[in-house]
Design a protein around this nucleic acid. Structure first.
Length: 506
RNA sequence: GGGCCGCUAGCUCAACUGGCUAGAGCACUUGACUCUUAAUCAAUAGGUUCCGGGUUCGAGUCCCGGGCGGCCUACCA
């Protein structure tokens, strides 16, 4: 905040201009009443000594009407306010839960009691007093001193029905978090998942690095980038669509085991599983191959599931997803042939594959070769049927421009995708480290682009130059973190696991 | 992108095929109350019915355009 940002009418007037609206005008008056009573309505800090959970832990089971002699100091937001003539019950909430404040007119001087009486749901307050239970047995803090900590000028949503409109919840996430415990729980679980992922990689000897978001060329994936401009350089730039090419440069540089948990930006549609900015974990390990990476993925997913749920069985919607290793493994071709009545291979005439692809609803373009056709057929007929964690392996060379050719088989790469409930959760391969092959793959992509395909990989000369210094055999991995959070928090919409999802401004 | 649906008080929701001054609960304001648990009771107040046009004696409701969102669908993770 800079000192010239004076609040003006423009900033306050968002349909609920504070002084003009009766709901907020009343709270503004109370704010002034606090000030005129000689108190700062927004004081500096507060020495909270006990959380709601602390109080509950220390006095779990007390008889109604009990006194403890235990003096505590708590702070939180008022969530419920029940006022009698000479008694006030306030239910306050902190990040650990709720605790009741019990204020009796007989205990307090008149001005302080009136201050408590005039406090509103939504205000932050602190209080000190003895832990007691009321006659009805509710654990409470019998208020001896009381400090307004921050006035809530806007009313909270209905205390019973809460805030349910998904758009309002997404646009006003702060309100959602105040009133919906589930929203807070997801935010916390996301943090725990990312922390656990980081720990898993660190424990395996990976170091966490940061690579650029702003790039002159966006590669490492087949996706449309966001464009921006650097004024001083006079340069059009792109936001990254993957971290892959930079992380592999670090492998060339000898860092050997690196990972990055970072924001990725793709200029594509928004729906229940896609946000324009999302979080990807990528890792690269020198001297590993895709089998090593698959083994690591099994272990990491099982560990994270266990860490969150205490079990490798995770309930997702109506399914139980089992994360016990090993996961099922099947080649893309096997899965395609399981789903089709005929049997195909990469030797099948293109005309035949094209006919099958069109039959199953693929929009076929003239540039599609056998590999692309088989990959499209896979996505059309097989992918959505996979429920339990499955490594789909041996993707065609055509659709995997950064993956190594299979050591024994023609046409396919040493690649896998981890599919769960029809969606991709991880993608990895034995990295292509032959710079001449890599150049040829890039050129094939350029030909596809010239043929009209819009999602192709650009030629990155500096990346090729890095490979020319010699990249060791490397196993690489990408994990869609948001998707994993959705899976482990049982959410069907990505906006529920991203605190501030991309929305059109109103 | 295409199709379907939605938007009413701060929040959650009503308002029949177009028809009395657009209602209710919670929240707010005022009053009563020393044991509440979504406190209760009483009274008051609160509206650009998303926005802009149109049809009509009359529009929250019907028509046209726009905004934002949801669901389904296609593509990317």
């Amino acid at each position: 905040m800079t000192d010239h940002e004076e609040p003006d009418d423009e900033q306050l007037d968002d349909g609920l201009e504070l002084a003009a609206h009766p709901l907020t005008a009343a709270r503004l008056e109370k704010l002034e009443a606090v000030r005129s009573g000689g108190r700062d309505p927004y004081p500096v800090g507060f020495e909270r000594e006990h959380t709601a959970a602390d109080v509950r832990d220390r006095h779990g089971e007390l008889e109604p009407g009990a006194t403890t002699g235990d003096i505590v100091t708590v702070a939180g937001r008022i969530m419920l306010h029940r006022s009698f003539g000479k008694l006030v019950f306030l239910t306050i909430e902190d990040h650990t839960g709720r605790i009741q404040l019990f204020a009796s007119k007989g205990d307090l001087d008149e001005a302080l009691f009136e201050l408590i009486e005039a406090s509103d749901v939504g205000d932050w307050v602190g209080a000190t007093g003895e832990v007691i239970t009321t006659r009805k047995g509710e654990l409470s803090v019998r208020v001896e001193s009381f400090t307004p900590l921050a006035k809530g000028l806007r009313p909270l949503p209905d205390k019973w029905h809460g805030l349910s409109d998904i758009e309002t919840r997404s646009r006003n996430r702060y309100v959602d978090l105040i009133v919906n415990p589930e929203a807070r729980k997801i935010a916390v679980t996301r943090a725990v998942i990312i922390s656990e992922l980081r720990r898993q990689f660190e424990n395996r000897g990976f170091i966490e690095v940061e690579t650029p978001v702003l790039l002159a060329e966006a590669g490492g994936a087949l996706a449309k980038p966001f464009e921006t401009h650097h004024n001083a350089l006079g340069l059009d730039m792109y936001l990254r669509i993957a971290t892959e090419l930079h992380l592999k440069r670090l492998i060339v540089g000898g860092l050997e085991k690196v990972f990055e948990i970072g924001r990725i930006f793709r200029n594509e549609g928004i729906d229940s599983t896609h946000n324009p900015e999302f979080t990807m974990l990528e890792s690269y390990e020198a001297l590993a191959d895709y089998n090593d990476v698959m083994a690591m993925v099994e272990s990491v997913f099982a560990s994270v599931a266990e860490h969150i749920h205490g079990s490798t069985d995770v309930a997702y919607q109506d399914q139980i997803i089992g994360f016990d290793a090993p996961f099922r493994r099947a080649t893309m071709l096997e899965l395609v042939n399981d789903a089709l009545v005929e049997t195909v291979s990469y030797e099948t005439p293109v005309a035949e594959l094209r006919a099958i692809a069109e039959r199953v609803g693929v929009k076929v373009m003239g540039t599609f070769g056998p590999g692309k056709l088989i990959a499209e057929i896979f996505e059309a007929v097989a992918e959505s049927k996979i429920v339990q964690p499955t490594f789909v392996t041996e993707h065609p060379i055509e659709t995997s421009p950064l993956a190594r050719r299979h050591r024994d088989k023609d046409h396919v790469t040493e690649r896998f995708e981890l599919i769960i409930c029809g969606s991709e959760y991880a993608n990895g391969y034995s990295e292509l480290n032959d710079p001449l092959d890599q150049r040829g793959r890039f050129e094939a992509q350029a030909r596809a682009r010239a043929g009209g395909e819009d999602e192709t990989h650009p030629i990155d000369e500096d990346f090729l130059r890095a490979l020319e210094y010699g990249m060791p055999p490397t196993g690489g991995l990408g994990i869609g973190v948001d998707r994993l959070v959705m899976l482990l928090t049982d959410q069907t919409h990505i906006r529920e696991v991203i605190l501030f999802p991309t929305l059109r401004p109103i």
